[in-house]
Design a protein around this nucleic acid. Structure first.
Lengths: 193, 193, 193, 193
DNA sequence: AAATAAACGAGACGGTACGTCAGGTCTTAGA
DNA sequence: TCTAAGACCTGACGTACCGTCTCGTTTATTT
């Protein structure tokens, strides 16, 4: 967009940040479906056109918020302590703990809606957030280490894990220890003791 | 709403059906997020008030469409042939086949959005559609029959199965045989040969 | 627009009047070029769409204000006392007095702009206001009565009279007795005494 | 361009002319009310600031276009052949011919609007264009020569003449020979035969 | 039968937000 | 230091729908 030998003023970093922060704040408080461009513009003290100049839609705005870690600040990297059960359990507890935190009640709903409405958001959630990537890595490592059978369908394992969480979350179902332990027991081979 | 000794005309079944069909058509063609009450009213040749008289919101409308099987006509009942692998594989192929069908491209997205925005829709998808219920039943039966270990966390198994499908669908990812076979292999114990 | 056997609610006279009055007020205070649809809507406590439903543009709004005598309440009918000089002088003084009145400073400018931008406004000023028509009538009568030569080009006489006033007004020039007397002397044959 | 011993570039004559020509072109084609600063800047390949540096408003731009004869190239100087009727008739025909020329349809409207909205434009039209001045001169000469009575209110005569034209033009009325002849007959004393 | 009342189609109403256009100011890089 | 480019905040544009509220018509019960 901005060539190297471009004339004119540079994009205002101040405005950019103010917009993203306002958008993230609105999503957290009111949910994605009550997010409006005008609301963001007002809250960010910015002209509407400044938003539309750089983002084509509110979902693109949310995608950028995600990319800048303004909505999901934590990375949820699974540990690699050698104990797969423990690592996955801890990872699950982290995520579930985050989703159960007071302010994050509607966040999952918002992100799912945003992702369903805009492939870019889905892509960001996929790639930039790295949930799948990190799980794949950890599970591939587990296969190498013999903690998982070599025939394990790693991608499906990730989908099943995250999918179960999302589904439960959408239904406002139980996201407690019963759930996480059930998942671990279901998806990981019995711990050899 | 309509007392026994009520005066005046009865609720018009014609209008009711026209509205639901128009709504279902719109969701199928344009997606849930482009569904508008005015659009439905126009397409159903009905006054807006007639919609608002009976449904409080567009998501309630979609919930009713679901309940009337106008959006998901099939029931996806898992077989019980005694061969769990085969039954689950067939069930998965049915669902995936439906989702991959030409007209149903955006349907999953629409339903997820509707469910995320309105708990009633989520409840309908849960209860009335009976996906979880039927899976639970089949898996419980499998536990009884010794096809699954008695410790199997049945609810989580259902969530993992459906969750993986939904997640893949949302990302427009591969919903082919590799995926379904991977899921079966992952979630069911190895077939005893 | 509204057929005779139309169902539905009737057009709200309250809203119609509020809009016209707000528009007229704005034109009087701020001038036609600062007239905005949003301003009118706000001042009339009306939705914007209610304005656009009935008037296609702000000039149409002004045209209607004129037609309803909200901007030019007086009719400026020339007398017919038999004394043409006196009658025309009185008519001129009326008009000039109106234009010179405190609140009406920018009105002429506004109306000229509105008329130049929208033929409908021009037509209203022509026909409904009846300036030309009344002058034509008076002058035709004068021709009949022998107060004007039979060859008098009556339409041009009206244009010259009104045109001179408009031109002076636009330039914020002198609109005093010198001007009116000059016009009378110029355009009417010398008084026979 | 830059004189010797001068620091920094002088005002770009190229830019100035390009701006004025673009503005004049826009007024001729789209009319004054569709004239935009951004449009002129784009068409003149000039930064907006370069316009605002030298002209405070679009009406000032139009005023300058007038002053540079980019909009009204002709001067409309009345002849002084000794025959007042002929001279005025010729002058009227010139003006009317210009206004009736194909490309000049909306020009009168545009100029009237610009003049009504901005006194500077009105002043330019008054002074620089010299319509009134030249008419005054010619009529004063006519008075001296005895072609007009000594009591003729010369300024009002000019206003009546030009005002009639403007009014007719605004109403898109007839600007043909009937009109011009009528005006001459009305405003000038009968030709002495 | 007449009166009554609800449901219907139509659509006007006050609003909110949309996405765009232009205004006028300010900033940057190039000549 | 003037220019071309263009980002910025502001505000109005005209449109799409929202959910509510009349209208006048059409049924279906009571009285």
């Amino acid at each position: 967009m901005a060539g190297p030998g471009r004339r004119g003023p540079k994009r205002s970093e101040e405005a950019r940040v103010a917009i993203l922060e306002a958008a993230a704040r609105r999503v957290m408080t009111d949910g994605y479906d009550h997010l409006t461009m005008e609301g963001v513009a007002t809250e960010a003290k910015v002209g509407k056109q400044t938003i539309y100049r750089w983002w084509p839609s509110r979902s693109a705005l949310v995608a950028d918020c995600l990319a800048e870690r303004l909505l999901l600040p934590e990375l949820f990297v699974p540990d690699d302590s050698g104990d797969l059960h423990a690592d996955v359990t801890r990872w699950l507890d982290n995520i579930v703990g985050f989703l159960n935190a007071p302010g994050n009640a509607g966040l999952l709903h918002s992100l799912v809606v945003a992702a369903a409405e805009n492939p870019d958001v889905a892509a960001i959630l996929n790639d930039r957030l790295g949930l799948w990537e990190m799980l794949d890595e950890r599970f591939t490592q587990a296969v190498t280490a013999g903690q998982l059978p070599p025939t394990t369908p790693v991608p499906e394992l990730g989908d099943a894990l995250i999918g179960a969480i999302v589904l439960r979350g959408l239904r406002n179902g139980d996201l407690g220890p019963t759930f996480t332990q059930g998942l671990v027991q279901l998806l990981l081979p019995p711990r050899e003791t």
